[in-house]
């Protein structure tokens, strides 16, 4: 029920980008300085004294509300009841996303862009060279391969088109091809752990201590690798 205390969504909020920035980055209106929910240092005055007044947009709900006027539409309801009227945001020079298109002074912008391009190119060449020069071991030192979470490794199929899952018994699964070690391990597993049961027992009893698998019935246990390991002792 606590969710009912959030301000209702405005019109057009569910639309895509309509070419007009939201008055505030979070999509909500600014509150007055005395409003307990408004940022205290957040003045709604235009930061530039000479900025032109906000143009009256096509959206009447964004128009500056006359002080003391009865507001219509949704209002902020806080724990103290109806809050202060949300002050209208100044449309273009307000607190929206920064306007990156400084269309005035084209010469300066072009120069800056050229400088950035040159700098970026140099950085890319240096970084690329560094990456190429790094061996996997060195790259490991940089922690680039360290898993952030408990990520699942990449996958390797075991002849998916040739054998649909579960149709025929497969001799061995390939291991995920994450590292060179996994690749090598895959061959090793194939070579050592495939074959007839007798070979598997002989080869594996020296290597494996136990086997984890789905719970087997007593009958299935007798044919299992675990039983072979138990007998080998």
């Amino acid at each position: 029920m606590a969710d009912q205390n959030v301000p209702p969504r405005r019109l057009r909020d569910d639309r895509g980008w309509d070419g007009r920035q939201h008055p505030t980055p979070d999509g909500y209106r600014d509150h007055g300085t005395s409003d307990p929910y408004g940022p205290s240092g957040h003045q709604s005055n235009p930061p530039y004294p000479d900025a032109p007044p906000a143009p009256a947009g096509p959206y009447p709900q964004y128009a500056p509300a006359a002080p003391g006027s009865a507001h219509r539409g949704p209002q902020w309801v806080g724990p103290d009841g109806l809050g202060r009227p949300a002050r209208a945001a100044t449309a273009t020079t307000g607190y929206g996303l920064p306007n990156l298109d400084d269309d005035d002074d084209p010469g300066r912008r072009a120069g800056r862009r050229r400088a950035l391009a040159a700098l970026g190119g140099t950085a890319a060449v240096v970084a690329g060279g560094a990456v190429l020069a790094m061996t996997p071991q060195v790259r490991g030192l940089f922690g680039g391969d360290a898993p952030v979470g408990d990520a699942t490794g990449t996958t390797a199929t075991d002849g998916t088109p040739a054998r649909p899952g579960g149709q025929q018994p497969s001799t061995a699964l390939e291991l995920p091809q994450e590292t060179a070690q996994s690749d090598r391990r895959s061959d090793e597993v194939d070579g050592r752990y495939s074959g007839t049961a007798g070979q598997a027992v002989r080869k594996q009893s020296a290597d494996l201590d136990t086997v984890s698998g789905a719970t087997a019935t007593s009958t299935a246990y007798r044919q299992s690798l675990q039983a072979a390991l138990d007998r080998a002792r």
Partner: peptide
């Protein structure tokens, strides 16, 4: 060393 049973071949890991 714990083998994980091969799902299609009970005699291998």
């Amino acid at each position: 060393r714990i083998g994980v049973r091969h799902p299609w071949d009970g005699s291998s890991a």
